[in-house]
Design a protein around this nucleic acid. Structure first.
Length: 593
RNA sequence: GGGGGUGUAGCUCAGUUGGUUAGAGCGAUCGCCUGUCACGCGAUAGGUCGCGGGUUCGAGUCCCGUCACUCCCGCCA
């Protein structure tokens, strides 16, 4: 028999009435009635009420015991009387009459309460993460994460995938995010990089003939954090398949996502077949390539309207003449919304750094008119044209923005979310997945005006290789795709380019010579030259999947030991300084500021 | 790198127009209480009001700077 416990704190019931038991756990709560003391004992599995009175010689000592002390309690299971049953806990029908106890782990005065729903400052939570993790909500989130990962493993194996580990110490890659670097002792002056993703390795696994690979892969990127983006490290379900076309990857992932989300959430999946939206359409209709499809609002292009002579909105007309565009959001049946609704959105846009958001509502008296500060600038014919483009009816309102395309897209996608939230149009009880497809191979860099890869340079361009028109690079689409759920980008993937000659051609468009490509992607190009199978894959973000399932907005709520926004681990005190000897051994010198 | 928010007791927070000795709940300590489950009651301790400077007869409160945390932009193929 185990010397610490005969049962856990979550399993005793009236069936055990009268039996002698031993429980071990944390003191969750005490209720001291002077001559009678209740102790709620907690472990991973639940809470059991224990009781002792002054007749027992241990009473005085137990009265003094600190919350969160770890104790072993010996006692008798006792059925509670009808009026003292607690329906809120699994073991609420019984309690333990304490015979004796033993302290297994003492506890100092707590820096923060454990048993409370109160929110508290994140730096304290992170510093005392082991206490924070005892709290029910985050404890449950972490358990959920574990179960989701186990489930993914099982399903992937069922689907015939093999799980492999790839190196954590690898080489720095020139494209993409900033690398975390590790100095090499045996090769002084040289550095390893932690993988931003096992991208090249998984392709090499395909070249090695393993056919289907997956891994719950740690990925490291030295970029600034966001609420949904850990600084440093995160996890992907990395997968790759040989001899596949895009559709087969969609099939696998769609099936897997539906299984996961149905198993671990009660929320409804809005589209059983995930809609496929082209990158181009997504930018037009939603202003972003990660649209929240729970949001019914659509964006329209009204640029052409502002070239009409019967539109007198001169500020916008002038901007349009110099290359700006106008995009609009239609809201249905909102003409009678109070002025504060419209002003709220206008002011919000100003807070976002725009010059504001123009709007009017469409009314019909003897003729069609536009009500609102800028309504007078539009003729009836112009309004009818706007109604045609936006599919608006009388009673609807139009919000619009004018700026350079890049700026308009950034703001109007946010405005779409903002307006939908204000109108309470987003049902949080739904999951809306979609695929974004047909990403362009290249884009023009905003700053340098040079042509560069828009996503993954290893993606396969669409169409036949022979017909590829490299004189119009911006028109080349790639077999590149993203999966998005509720406006959150879960992953991106691609059919890879496994042909070295084609790769040289594409890299030359982005300004890389054959020599440079050979140098930077030596291992990859070399491998692809020895019989590479056509292959492709994707890598859904595990952390974000769990966030959606746990209904959390912050990735730290589903991460065991996260770092803070400045990429510091307050509990382990990382990063930390190292000794002179360590530096010397690595051939490094710290430059003092 | 830039912008917003926050910073008062161990924790969560209040603090009026700048005005006496900076308060409450939880936690801690001490006492009372035999059916609670956020037990109840009484008392005590606990404060560099993030830090530095300024304005003022007087600053938690106003101004300037700075630091920390957080959210966002940039960044994240």
């Amino acid at each position: 028999m185990n010397k610490f416990r005969t049962h856990t704190c979550g399993e005793l019931s009236v069936k055990n009435n009268g039996s002698k038991v031993t429980l071990s756990g944390w003191i969750n709560k005490k209720r001291d009635h002077g001559n009678l003391l209740f102790i709620d004992l907690r472990d991973n599995y639940g809470i059991t009420q224990c009781i002792i009175d002054k007749e027992n010689k241990y009473f005085k000592n137990l009265e003094k015991i600190h919350l969160e002390t770890v104790v072993k309690i010996n006692g008798l299971v006792s059925k509670r009387s009808q009026d003292t049953v607690n329906k809120d806990i699994k073991t609420g029908d019984i309690e333990i009459k304490i015979k004796s106890y033993e302290i297994l782990g003492s506890c100092k005065e707590l820096p923060m309460p454990v048993f409370t729903d109160q929110e508290y400052a994140e730096d304290i939570r992170l510093k005392y993460r082991f206490l924070d993790l005892r709290r029910k909500k985050i404890h449950d989130n972490i358990i959920l994460r574990s179960k989701v990962i186990s489930f993914i493993r099982e399903e992937m194996i069922k689907l015939g995938f093999l799980e492999f580990q790839t190196p954590i110490l690898t080489s720095s890659s020139p494209e993409g995010a900033r690398d975390f670097l590790v100095p090499s002792r045996l090769n002084q002056g040289k550095f390893y990089a932690l993988p931003q993703a096992p991208q090249q390795f998984k392709q090499l696994i395909m070249v090695s003939g393993f056919d289907k690979y997956f891994q719950i892969a740690p990925c490291f990127r030295d970029e600034d954090a966001r609420a949904d983006r850990s600084p440093g490290e995160f996890y992907q379900l990395d997968l790759e398949m040989s001899f596949v076309e895009q559709e087969e990857i969609f099939e696998v992932v769609e099936k897997l996502m539906k299984l996961i989300f149905k198993k671990f959430s009660k929320k409804k999946i809005l589209y059983e077949t995930f809609p496929k939206i082209t990158y181009r359409d997504a930018l037009l209709k939603y202003g972003t390539d990660k649209p929240d499809l729970r949001n019914p609002l659509l964006i329209s292009d009204l640029t052409s309207v502002f070239t009409r002579d019967d539109v007198k909105f001169e500020i916008f007309k002038k901007l349009v003449k110099s290359g700006s565009i106008v995009r609009a959001i239609k809201t249905e049946n909102t003409k009678d919304k109070p002025r504060s609704f419209f002003d709220g959105i206008d002011n919000w846009a100003k807070d976002q750094g725009a010059s504001g958001m123009a709007y009017f509502s469409i009314e019909e008296g003897e003729r069609i008119t536009a009500k609102g500060p800028v309504g007078k600038f539009f003729s009836q014919d112009a309004l009818i044209e706007i109604m045609k483009i936006t599919e608006a009816k009388v009673g609807d309102s139009i919000f619009f923005l004018c700026n350079k395309e890049y700026e308009v897209l950034k703001l109007i996608s946010l405005a779409r979310d903002k307006i939908a939230n204000d109108l309470n149009l987003i049902n949080n009880e739904n999951f809306a997945f979609c695929w974004i497809v047909d990403y362009p191979m290249f884009e023009v860099d905003e700053k340098t005006k040079k042509i560069s890869f828009s996503h993954n340079p290893f993606s396969m361009p669409q169409g036949e290789e022979a017909k590829l028109d490299i004189s119009k690079p911006l028109e080349i689409k790639a077999y590149q795709y993203d999966i998005v759920c509720n406006g959150i980008e879960l992953s991106s993937g691609a059919i890879r380019n496994h042909k070295p000659d084609l790769m040289y051609k594409l890299f030359s468009i982005a300004g890389y010579s054959k020599n440079e490509v050979d140098k930077k992607f030596k291992g990859m190009i070399n491998a692809l030259s020895y019989g590479a199978p056509p292959h492709g894959g994707i890598a859904p973000g595990i952390d974000r999947i769990v966030m959606l399932l746990a209904n959390e907005k912050n990735i730290r709520e589903v991460t065991l030991f996260p770092m803070n926004q400045n990429a510091q681990d307050l509990m382990m005190d990382a990063p930390s300084e190292i000794t002179e000897d360590q530096l010397k051994e690595l051939g490094l010198k710290i430059k003092k500021k």
